[in-house]
Design a protein around this nucleic acid. Structure first.
Length: 342
DNA sequence: GGATCCTTCTTCTTCTTC
């Protein structure tokens, strides 16, 4: 450990520009590096040192968790990284990234949790998860807002990927490919809904459907931790901020009420960062539920579950209230950008 | 019944060290 640390220090002294690059990030790339720095240095500094994989079934996924939380052969854990960061950078509060990035706060800030929402003392223990129908109106949706406010880099990489795929598959082939991806995602959602509604027949049929059977076995271990489904494919709208969306699922995950987003993916997404804007989407839905009179409860956690076609265990990415608040702020900025443009 | 809407996915920052 000491060796590693010394090496790192040597590197920093030998290559001062590298250090500079770490902190002086071009304007357009500001979000990423701070997220990276923040995860080990800032976010968890005050709180209990949390291993975000504690939620994972440790016995079952010991190796997976290890491979995710360690780097190659070093014996790093989130705790040792935290300690190392602390030693290298000092207490986080004294070594903040440039103020500029921190002051970028939404002009029209609204808290994620609604302080005025009244919740019945007795939990309405209805068996049927609610399903609010989408209202006909002109409010922009969460996905539309996110799509139309992609960062230039995101747009660039997506376009590059699209061109490459078209070159490979042809225009029609590419259309067929995306159509299939969408279909799989939709079928997967429908199947989950049947499972949650205990529609035995439909669920059984879907389990046998080769197109999605892999995805379903992929999430099997996550489903065991999901209970008390409160809403399914349900419309939400933020009454103050004027946007709407369709929430996949609101349920308890390991005892905590979450907005759950089920995703199918071709590529492995072992970290939350791999899911791009999905955490913003989840935060947006949480905020909307909390400011929507159709829902007599509040949510402060999120869960993104990435399922795989080959049936390998899905990656559940739990978002605690602290993480949700951070993504909520990012979402507010995107929303603001959208509103400014439209 | 047709039209429209919300979703469904897709991207990646990384080297010179033994």
């Amino acid at each position: 450990m000491l060796l590693v640390r010394m090496k790192f220090l040597q590197l920093l002294f030998r290559k001062p520009r590298k250090l500079e690059m770490l902190f002086q990030v071009p304007f357009c790339q500001k979000q990423f590096p701070y997220m990276c720095l923040a995860t080990s240095a800032c976010l968890y500094s005050k709180k209990k040192k949390v291993n975000s994989y504690e939620q994972v079934d440790q016995e079952k996924y010991k190796n997976l968790v290890y491979s995710v939380t360690s780097y190659k052969t070093s014996a790093q854990t989130p705790e040792t990284i935290f300690e190392e960061d602390n030693l290298l950078y000092g207490p986080p509060s004294k070594h903040r990234p440039p103020i500029k990035a921190q002051t970028k706060t939404p002009k029209n800030w609204v808290p994620l949790i609604n302080p005025n929402k009244r919740i019945p003392l007795l939990n309405s223990d209805s068996d049927v998860p609610r399903k609010i129908a989408l209202q006909k109106n002109k409010m922009p949706s969460v996905t539309r807002i996110l799509q139309q406010t992609l960062s230039p880099q995101q747009a660039f990489y997506l376009e590059r990927w699209r061109q490459k795929m078209i070159l490979e598959l042809g225009k029609d082939g590419f259309e067929e490919y995306t159509k299939n991806l969408f279909l799989q995602g939709e079928l997967f959602h429908t199947a989950l809904e049947s499972i949650f509604l205990s529609e035995e027949m439909a669920a059984k049929e879907q389990r046998e459907d080769v197109a999605i059977s892999g995805y379903l076995s992929s999430v099997q271990h996550v489903l065991e931790d999901v209970s008390e489904v409160q809403a399914l494919e349900s419309a939400v709208q933020h009454e103050t901020l004027q946007y709407l969306g369709l929430v996949d699922c609101v349920a308890k995950y390991r005892g905590q009420l979450c907005v759950i987003d089920w995703k199918t993916s071709e590529k492995p997404k072992p970290t939350l960062k791999n899911t791009f804007d999905n955490p913003l989407q989840v935060a947006a839905y949480i905020g909307a539920i909390n400011h929507d009179a159709n829902y007599d409860f509040q949510v402060s956690c999120g869960l993104i579950v990435v399922a795989y076609k080959n049936g390998s265990p899905a990656h559940p990415h739990f978002m605690d209230p602290n993480l949700c608040s951070q993504y909520w702020n990012k979402w507010l900025l995107r929303l603001e950008e959208y509103m400014d443009r439209n």
